[in-house]
Design a protein around this nucleic acid. Structure first.
Ligand SMILES: [Zn+2]
Ligand SMILES: [Zn+2]
Ligand SMILES: [Zn+2]
Ligand SMILES: [Zn+2]
Ligand SMILES: [Zn+2]
Ligand SMILES: [Zn+2]
Length: 1044
DNA sequence: GAGTTTGAAACT
DNA sequence: CAGTTTCAAACTC
């Protein structure tokens, strides 16, 4: 951890690699390595990485991918890493979990990337510890991941792509854009994690592939994994053994076609990635890609990690240049933004980054398009690629810009288009048959088949079915290409190959365990581009990339199905993605557009003070001013973030420095003992699962983010940064005990979030329709909604939860596309899965109060979801009306309700209008702020090992159910998480939910899949429905519940 | 930049 | 667990 100053400043090189860790990483995934190198591994003091890797973790590959991705992202902004990482990293083979594992990996990567890696180098690999933890959590996921050959694709290419995209995107903007963005971006500290894996879309995958083969280390893997199934087993073994790669990779690659690239990569790890990416199409320009490029098996990892690291925020120090190299900078340029967010469960100890966000569940993938088109999108893969460059990197990025291509498929798919297509694409892309494909593919391994399929597969690999819309991708590619940003998605092809076989298996296995979803959302803000991709895995993993013009941020959310068994079924259902929804569009853009403001423009305009703040924030590092805590208590933001204090800190008597690592670790452990989640990312993302639908719709669920513990605001009304929820840019959830909550990102009651989104949406659209407006405008309406919801739901909570969950951020995406699905959650009935809770929420609301009944609730949810969809649509453009159509009516109703949802006065009218932008900006800002904080750490999933955890991400992705994720995330405190997440607990916790939960499974399925025709029909409900999570925090359950 | 406010973390 | 104290950030001026 210590990395701080030195590391930061020093750009870094990554000398660190040398450490075993680095080597280890390298072996595992390039990404990791990168981080490590760049970052100081040591910081964390994490134990050696090997353990992690070695162990089971097949995931490594993922990590690599992820790492790469992350790196890229990270790079983007030296300082900040926009990315979120999901660390899949290490998951044991079980990996089914792909999701989690992925996340973890990412997380790890990220962290590594961060300072720590560089610094320490060493030794510890943050991963290691995490891995273990992760493994536990991830285990399930892992499997999934494995398959996934998917991973690779995404990762490698994605990264590159992202970078490019990022480049396009404004660095700053991105960051600013959303809090999440920040997180992603860089979380200043490097916190960002990436998602990349999931993202897959691209070519990176190639990079990944190999890795994938490895085991899916990453989420991607999971996705990809499917493809790589075969390899997986071997890989896993190998991985565990240490060897990974090449062979496996190669095989995988070959499968995919990507072989060439891979081979290159494998040999030349870094180069390879790039190559791959480049190869296809990559941009010659972008040299960058480095990170991506690197990818040799182990080497890859290292390189990647290194690169990322360098890129990483921390890296502030790192020259952007370096970063660029590393990750292709994509990230770097984006600096600001995190392109990807990975959710990881794991921490990245060393790096210090921690993913800030956790994705809770994401079954669905959403894609957002880029405004521009940057495209990327193609699918999930893109994510990886999508690297956003951070601002700094911009230049580089540009240079670097790489395009993602989806070789296999159409290699070139325009993400952007994706807008419309995107999400759908992914999901839909196949849409028609996609889901099916994915599933089958994944499961069976089928295939490689079409590009689309591949993509899907990839997703699937995740377990979830991630569906990417190839078509979308395709489109996106085009777009992207056009733009510099373009990202290539090469990987896909590669992914494809592997995935099928492996994935399927994994999935299955995983399936049971598997994560329901992973979702990654990337948003790039590029001025022009916006792309979002969502992928949802049937399992529930979703990945979404979103590029907002200015902003680039990506978040990945992954979820693991808590319950395996159920999951599978769910997954299948979920997996399917509906194409239709894709349309989407640029919700994000719409929603977040404001961000732009944040971006450079804003900066310029901003008052000096503000600028300072931003700049400082941007830097990522927060810098503490501790006077009495010695920076060894959670009072210290640096310490709390799992990062070491930097020279920039104004602390007194600081012990949170490299020279005192022992003490730092010791203290951390103590604290973790007390509270396993202490170092977990503050934000948990929930991903909704995809619902699957058939068709089209996408199941994507919107992602929602919530604070792991919730706030306890009494006087701030959650409208100031005093509020932790607000500070992080997330809405309050049921877990919050705030009084008079008016959180612009989402009220505790849930009305808000939706509202905001909806508002805009509604306003825009509604205006047209008028219907909505009336309702919306009136505050009462919101309340009404709330009320209704409550009534309907059974419980207010239910309502709330549903509503609240939405996190603005992600949603963006548009959910429009979204999928309806999602109701999120419901799916996971399985009690096990923490997600269940979520599911429960989503699903049935009814129960709680019982009052109205689930049905009612459902409808409402649907409505909400619809709304979102609509919004999205609107935003998107129109979208796709689908949503409306059938449900539109509902929508109206919803409007009444939801719009309203903004109960709070503020929310309502003015809020509404204002909101979206403001909110977004806030979010972005917040995130940035927060993100940058520590930036660095990743959170480790394994709760257990405190050590590792250091790195926290700010975000954690929770599986929808939370179960998975939570567990994963918190491995250490699985109980807690589980409890929280776990259905039962969650349910219980969220009282309503629990109650509701019971039914869920069926519901889920129903919902998800068939859910309702209505849903399928196009609706995409999703977002809203996303239930709020139960608080991650262990205690939270009880307490929070209480609070709530 | 100093002082106040705020809510989390730590402590009892 | 609840209540209190400590702490540092956020906010205000
Ligand atoms: Zn401090
Ligand atoms: Zn500090
Ligand atoms: Zn300090
Ligand atoms: Zn609050
Ligand atoms: Zn709150
Ligand atoms: Zn609140």
């Amino acid at each position: 951890m210590a990395s701080p100053p030195s590391s930061k400043n020093a750009p870094a090189s990554p000398p660190a690699q040398e450490s075993p860790f680095s080597s280890f990483v390298s072996s595992l995934s390039p990404i990791n390595a990168v981080y490590a190198r760049n970052v100081m591994h040591t910081d964390l003091g994490v134990p050696s990485p090997q353990p992690v890797f070695t162990s089971p973790h097949i995931n490594f590959p993922r990590r690599r991918d992820l790492s790469k991705r992350f790196q890229k992202q990270a790079f983007s902004g030296p300082e900040k890493l926009p990315l979120f990482a999901i660390s899949d990293t290490v998951f044991p083979e079980s990996t089914d979990i792909s999701g989690p594992s992925c996340l973890q990996a990412m997380a790890q990567l990220i962290p590594c990337s961060q300072k720590e890696c560089n610094k320490d180098g060493p030794s510890q690999d943050p991963f290691s510890s995490p891995l273990t933890c992760v493994d536990e959590f991830l285990a399930d996921p892992m499997e999934v991941c494995d398959d996934p050959a998917e991973m690779p694709q995404i990762k490698m290419s994605d990264c590159t792509n992202y970078k490019e995209t990022k480049k396009d995107c404004e660095k700053e903007d991105l960051r600013q854009a959303h809090p999440l963005g920040k997180l992603m971006a860089g979380c200043n500290g490097g916190q960002c994690v990436i998602l990349g894996k999931s993202i897959t879309m691209e070519e990176d995958t190639t990079d990944l592939h190999p890795h994938n083969a490895m085991k899916g280390i990453e989420m991607d893997v999971s996705f990809n994994s499917t493809s790589s199934n075969q390899a997986e087993g071997d890989l896993l073994k190998e991985r565990s053994s240490g060897s990974i790669n090449h062979t496996e990779i190669e095989s995988s690659l070959r499968q995919t076609n990507e072989i060439q690239n891979l081979s290159e990569r494998s040999h030349h790890k870094r180069p390879e990635k790039e190559v791959t990416a480049n190869d296809d199409q990559i941009d010659p320009d972008l040299p960058s890609v480095p990170a991506c490029s690197s990818c040799h098996g182990s080497d890859f990892v290292d390189q990647i990690s290194v690169e990322h690291l360098s890129l990483m925020p921390n890296d502030k120090n790192m020259s952007s240049k370096d970063q660029n190299h590393a990750s292709s900078s994509i990230c770097s340029e984006a600096k600001q933004n995190v392109d990807l967010c990975l959710v990881q469960t794991g921490q990245w100890p060393d790096c210090g980054f921690t993913p800030q966000v956790l994705a809770e569940s994401l079954p669905n993938v959403q894609e957002n398009d880029l405004q521009d088109d940057s495209g990327v999108k193609p699918n999930t893969y893109t994510d990886d690629k999508v690297t956003y460059d951070q601002e700094e990197g911009a230049q580089h990025q540009r240079a670097m810009r790489k395009r993602l291509q989806f070789e296999s498929f159409e290699n070139h798919i325009g993400w952007k288009e994706s807008y419309s297509n995107y999400t759908s694409a992914i999901c839909n892309s196949e849409s028609p048959g996609p889901s099916m494909d994915l599933d089958s593919a994944c499961v069976e391994s089928a295939a490689p088949p079409s590009n689309e399929q591949l993509t899907q597969l990839v997703d699937l690999s995740g377990n979830a079915l991630c569906k990417l819309s190839l078509s979308a991708c395709r489109k996106s590619k085009v777009d992207i290409c056009a733009q510099d940003k373009s990202i290539r998605i090469e990987g896909s092809s590669s992914l494809i190959a592997p995935t099928p076989s492996g994935i399927g298996l994994h999935l299955n296995s995983i399936g049971s365990s598997a994560p329901k979803c992973l979702s990654i959302n990337m948003q790039c803000q590029e001025k022009d581009l916006e792309a979002s991709i969502d992928k949802s895995v049937s399992c529930g993993h979703k990945i979404g990339l979103q590029h907002s013009k200015h902003h680039c941020s990506s978040t990945i959310i992954s979820t693991y199905p808590s319950v395996i068994e159920n999951d599978k079924a769910d997954l299948q259902e979920n997996q399917e993605i509906q194409p239709s929804s894709l349309d989407a569009k640029p919700l994000a853009a719409k929603y977040f557009p404001s961000e732009d403001a944040c971006s450079s423009k804003e900066l310029t305009q901003m008052s000096p003070k503000k600028k300072r703040k931003k700049s400082s924030e941007n830097d990522g590092s927060k810098r503490c001013h501790c006077k009495r805590s010695k920076c060894l208590k959670l009072y210290c933001d640096c310490f709390a973030a799992g990062t070491l204090c930097s020279d920039d800190c104004a602390c007194q008597g600081c012990f949170n420095k490299p020279e005192h690592q022992e003490k730092v670790q010791e203290t951390r452990q103590q604290i973790e003992t007390r509270n396993p989640l202490a170092f977990a990312p503050k934000v948990v993302l929930r991903v909704t699962e995809p619902q699957k639908d058939s068709g089209d719709t996408k199941h994507i669920t919107p992602t929602s983010a919530r604070h792991k513990r919730g706030c306890n605001c009494k006087k701030s009304q959650c409208l100031k940064k005093y509020c932790e929820c607000y500070q992080v840019g997330v809405g309050c959830s049921l877990g919050c005990r705030c009084e008079g909550c008016k959180n612009t990102f989402g009220r505790k009651d849930g009305s808000c979030e939706i509202t905001e989104m909806e508002y805009k949406f509604l306003q825009r659209e509604m205006k047209n329709k008028k219907l909505m407006e009336g309702d919306l405008e009136s505050d009462s309406s919101c309340e009404k909604l709330g009320v209704k919801m409550r009534k309907g739901v059974s419980t207010t909570e239910g309502c709330i939860s549903r509503l609240s969950p939405l996190t603005p951020l992600f949603q963006n995406p548009d959910e429009n596309d979204v999928p309806k699905a999602q109701p999120p959650v419901s799916h996971y009935p399985s009690p096990e899965s923490g997600s269940s809770a979520l599911l429960s929420y989503t699903e049935s609301p009814s129960s709680p109060k019982g009052s109205i009944g689930d049905t009612f609730a459902k409808t409402r949810e649907e409505i909400l979801s619809l709304v979102h969809c609509d919004q999205d649509l609107n935003g998107g453009t129109a979208a796709k009306v689908d949503p409306f159509s059938p449900r539109w009516d509902g929508f109206a109703d919803i409007c009444d309700i939801s719009p309203v949802s903004n109960p709070s006065p503020s929310v309502t009218g003015s809020a509404a209008t204002i909101n979206t932008r403001e909110l977004r900006s806030l979010q972005t800002k917040l995130f940035h702020g927060s993100s940058h904080l520590s930036a660095g750490l990743r959170w480790r999933s394994s709760p257990v090992t405190p050590l590792h955890r250091f790195g926290e991400g700010k975000f954690i992705i929770e599986p929808d159910s939370g179960s998975g994720l939570c567990c994963n995330v918190e491995d250490d405190t699985p109980d807690v998480l589980k409890s929280t997440s776990s259905p039962t607990k969650s349910v219980t916790a969220s009282s309503p939910n629990k109650k509701r939960v019971s039914p869920p499974t069926t519901c889920l399925h129903e919902i998800g899949s068939s859910s309702s025709p209505a849903i399928k029909s196009g609706r995409k409900f999703i977002l809203k429905s996303v239930p709020s999570f139960p608080p991650l925090t262990p205690y939270s359950n009880s307490t929070r519940k209480h609070g709530t």
